[in-house]
């Protein structure tokens, strides 16, 4: 197996998150599960019918239109970038990450290394993972073990964000 450009991990960065669920009968421009869309100053990741996770930005919706629940403390965002990013993730991710199957812009909530992760692929060689905060350290261990043979680099967390 040839060794491509090493993947780089930016570990444990916090990002403002809100889970948005439309009330019944209310039509919101939320992306369908598996898709993403720019909304309300951030990127909405479609998780289920009428349910999306808004990354960044702030949704301005009254309760009779949607349930908006803050989730900033609940997740840490990890980035896995580089030509070998999909190969690294394949050590624990059960989805088909081939570029034609999980196209740029795709979203999936799935089990990766025994952890339920929200996976988003902004470009062909970049993946963003929203990992439950209490499981983040175990997950970083999985990522660094999987990335090691590729020469992967885990950047340390910024102080005070944990």
């Amino acid at each position: 197996m040839s060794v491509p450009e090493p993947p780089v991990l930016v570990a444990e960065d916090r990002v403002v998150l809100h889970q948005v669920a439309a009330r019944r009968g209310v039509a919101l421009p939320l992306p369908a599960p598996g898709a993403s869309a720019a909304l309300w100053g951030g990127i909405a990741l479609g998780l289920a019918p009428g349910v999306a996770m808004l990354v960044g930005g702030r949704p301005d919706l009254p309760p009779d239109q949607a349930a908006v629940v803050e989730q900033t403390g609940g997740f840490l965002r990890m980035r896995v970038a580089g030509l070998a990013a999909a190969e690294v993730l394949a050590r624990g991710c059960r989805l088909d990450l081939d570029e034609a199957a999980f196209t740029p812009g795709s979203v999936a909530r799935a089990l990766i290394a025994q952890v339920t992760v929200i996976l988003y692929r902004p470009t062909a060689t970049r993946f963003e993972l929203l990992v439950p905060a209490t499981l983040a350290r175990s997950f970083v261990h999985f990522l660094s073990t999987a990335a090691a043979p590729f020469g992967g680099v885990v950047l340390p967390a910024e102080r005070g964000t944990r």
Binding site: A32, P49, R94, L95, L111
Partner: peptide, 11 residues
């Protein structure tokens, strides 16, 4: 129907 083909362990 929403997520595509997935392994049994997710359910």
């Amino acid at each position: 129907p929403f997520c595509g083909l997935r392994d049994e362990v997710e359910f």
